[in-house]
Amino acid sequence: MARASSERVMPAEAGRERASAAAPVPIVSRIGGAVGQLFEHEWVFGYTMIAPAILYIVLLVAYPFFVALRFTVTSASVSEPIASFVGLRNFVDIWNDDIFRRALINTFVFTISSQVIQAFLGTILAFLLLRPFRGRRVVRALFIIPFTVPVAIGAITWSWMLNPQYSVLNWVGSHIGLFPAPGPNWLGEEQLAMISVIVVNVWRGLPFTTILLMAGITAVPQEIIEAAALDAAGFFRRWNDIIVPIIAPILFIALLFSFVSQFTDMTVVWLLTRGNPVNTTHVLASYAFEVGIVSGDLGRGAAISLFLFPVLLVAAIVMLRYLKSQQLD
């Protein structure tokens, strides 16, 4: 290598000299050189670089997914994983299972209602937080806390706040006169338990929705908003005709993400109610866990969680079309 610098004094010669210097190089490094050369090819490089990610996903996502599909038509269980083919019996079984049907409905009720509430509150909040005011950064920092607390921890904290005996919410509620002294048994009654689950979902999801909305709104060029203001457009006018169309794409992806993550989540239900009272608050995910892991019935458990799939598929297709349209320009 020491020669290199003297070689470079006469740049005109350098190229040729380097080319001819290839001959005496030992064979091993020549092969290395050839591999390096090949690696410079755009396709070879691209495929090589992406291969580990693809491999990981194929082995630990795609393959298990097909295993899960196979589970659904077998009698596999934790105690005897080598199972026999049972056709659609698992599906028939769960369809006749009242808890399953309740879980299916709950999944939609919980997800949709908490999404709607989040979108509504998130919009209000995003506009409030976008106004310049003293202490904005602090408020924002405090505000995203629910998003940063691990879901399981958040759910447990809420279950402590809603504890039948020592509920702090009930203490406050009864002291300011919302309801009489002992207060509602939040997690023990069907309706109240469902409301509780939704509230915790909103508590957890609201910050993220708000932050993405804020980012979206900020991305609307200020001039456009000013132009609209000059055109004397009222607030709702501006919101509908200008802000929404411009931020729609990113908003849409964000909401879809948050929808999917809530749709498939079991943590809140599992830690808050464990499906109780009397299995009225299960969602598909938590019931699949109950049946598949706790009771060890892999076939039926997999069949239950497979019901999540059509919704995910729709979400995936919608997102795919969106991404394709993004790539066209």
Partner: peptide, 16 residues
């Protein structure tokens, strides 16, 4: 494809 796998939730895969 890589992006979409993020949509596949643990609750679909934990059994296999």
């Amino acid at each position: 494809g890589i992006f979409l796998t993020y949509l596949i939730p643990p609750t679909l895969l934990f059994l296999p």
